[in-house]
Design a protein around this nucleic acid. Sequence first.
DNA 1: TGTACATCAGTGAACGCGCGTTCACTGATGTAC
DNA 2: TGTACATCAGTGAACGCGCGTTCACTGATGTAC
Lengths: 206, 206
Amino acid sequence: MNTRARARRGEGAHLREELLDATERLLAATGDEEMVSVRAIAEAVGVSPPAIYLHFPDKDALIFEVCAARFAELDRFIEDAAAGVRDPIEALVVRGRAYVRFGVENPEQYRVLFMRRGSARALTPAELRETAAFGNLVKAVERAQQAGRLTSSEDGVRIAMELWAVAHGVTSLLIGVHGFPWPADFADRVLRTYVDGLSSRADTSS
Amino acid sequence: MNTRARARRGEGAHLREELLDATERLLAATGDEEMVSVRAIAEAVGVSPPAIYLHFPDKDALIFEVCAARFAELDRFIEDAAAGVRDPIEALVVRGRAYVRFGVENPEQYRVLFMRRGSARALTPAELRETAAFGNLVKAVERAQQAGRLTSSEDGVRIAMELWAVAHGVTSLLIGVHGFPWPADFADRVLRTYVDGLSSRADTSS
DNA sequence: TGTACATCAGTGAACGCGCGTTCACTGATGTAC
DNA sequence: TGTACATCAGTGAACGCGCGTTCACTGATGTAC
């Protein structure tokens, strides 16, 4: 029953922002995309459901925009975490850990981005490859290659995909399988073991 | 519009089997749990929707039973794949590969088992640990430990959880992110790199 | 300075849909006497 | 051997629900003359 003053002329776009904010809050609070209905969003903002269609073509576009914004945050979060780390191998572990942590703290957005059925709007592979988050991971891999800590005979993109798969595995199990006795250092352990394995590929080839 | 002869007295349980079969087929065919409605299942079998409630307390119990059965198949599939493999480290890779393959070939059942929201009925952690599939993985890890190929100073269950996370990461990305240029040997590469990393843990401790 | 008018930011009611589930029932099948 | 009856395996119609979306509208706000 949140009431809201009607926006003044030319300021209709304010509602757009409020809708995005409310959707994000609901997604985070309920932790369930299916509970974030058009009606729930509208009520949270203090507006009638049809008002949403003044600013978004449909519900999916709204949800997706919220999640895409969160995706940009994911990139920033990872970059911040890795910023001070000199050692390029350690930096890969730190990145992975940041990725996992972000996913665990924003499980529903994570689900919408990476664990959704094919039917709904999701990041296309092309979009995904062009995201800052993935691009920065590829660069981090390449730095490790240039420092001679990973084999340079392999494509950095491929290695980045592998690291993504490992971090995603940890993240989605932590999100999806509650109550399992995951050790506190689980993510760290898995990531570290993986980069060890990557390093040994380098050792055998050089 | 499948019509079906009413079962004779005492043979009502036949319908139960037919319902399980039809649900499994629909799940596999549509690849979308949400399309597998009570009405769709009933129609596939040639029976009215309420007939389902003669055999299952609710829809969730039916879906879950189908998926749990598939889970038992997963175990068999993995055991068959690993049966002839002598080398205990190679056996871990082979197991992982079988896991991924099974998931990719049964994506919707995989989703229901491992990628579902918390609200619905899912395997409890206790059930999960007691599944043959997880138990057999732990045993396979312990064989590698006993052969001196993995450090024995760590809990086999923990290492099994790590391998699961890695295999799950690959599986769920392959399922969830279609069209991304995953290499054909992606699963193999990731699993092999991980067991390499695990082996190097053993090297440093012994 | 006053007023007609276009525009903008919404609203209220309703649309049709498909869902899981319940309830009172039917009619064939087997059994007891 | 015939018949009344209990049982079993279903059916048909309807329940209430919440969903995303559409449509005709309203009423305040600013602008032109």
